[in-house]
Simulated scan of single mutants.
Amino acid sequence: MTKKRLLIVAHAPSPNTRLLRDAVIRGAEQLELDEVEIVARAALDAGPDDVMAAQAVILFTTENLGYMSGGMKDFFDRTYYPCLEHTQGLPYALLIRAGHDGTGTRRAVETIVTGLRWRAVRDPLVCRGDFQQAFVELCEEFGATIAASLDAGII
């Protein structure tokens, strides 16, 4: 039997965002699920083949000037058309590290994934304001929840 693949696409340019990215990965991997393979890629490295091989995706972006990061925008620019007809219904979850409120970032990502016809499996997690150590635990739980949901066939 082939494992289900959870793809984590992250733009993590700072030490704090790398802590959050690593927490998402750690949360997903800590369950040691027999049926789920965790694949993590930097937004600038992930491509259409990665998306098409996945059964679910976690998107992690920073808020940059009220929009998604340039790295995440680049990911969508390179993958949108190659994936458009092949990934409809793909379950995804969104994580935003926002210095402000994350509203513009959320709207931008949701506009693109709506065009791709991907399916949100939970409300976005938005880590707002100054960095807090509590964000790390939230991100770990986020990764674990999505991985467990994929394993259980909920998503």
Rank of each mutant, 00 (worst) to 15 (best):
D49F: 01
D49H: 13
D49S: 13
D50Q: 06
D50R: 10
M52F: 06
Q55R: 15
Q55F: 09
A56V: 12
A56D: 11
I58F: 04
I58L: 08
T61G: 11
T61A: 06
N64G: 00
N64A: 11
L65N: 14
G66L: 02
Y67F: 15
Y67A: 11
Y67E: 03
M68W: 12
S69M: 01
G71L: 03
G71M: 01
G71P: 01
G71D: 07
M72T: 15
F75W: 07
D77M: 06
D77H: 08
T79N: 06
Y80R: 02
P82C: 08
L84F: 15
H86E: 12
H86F: 05
Q88R: 14
G89H: 02
G89C: 08
L90D: 02
P91Y: 07
Y92P: 04
L94V: 05
I96K: 07
I96N: 04
G99M: 05
H100A: 11
D101R: 09
D101S: 13
T103E: 13
T105S: 12
A108C: 02
A108N: 01
V109Y: 06
V109D: 09
E110G: 01
I112G: 03
V113G: 00
V113N: 00
T114H: 14
G115I: 00
L116E: 02
R117H: 13
W118G: 06
A120C: 02
R122Q: 15
R128K: 14
G129F: 05
G129P: 07
A134Y: 06
F135G: 05
F135N: 13
V136C: 07
V136E: 08
C139T: 07
E140M: 12
G143P: 13
G143S: 05
G143A: 10
A144P: 10
T145L: 11
T145R: 15
I146D: 03
I146V: 15
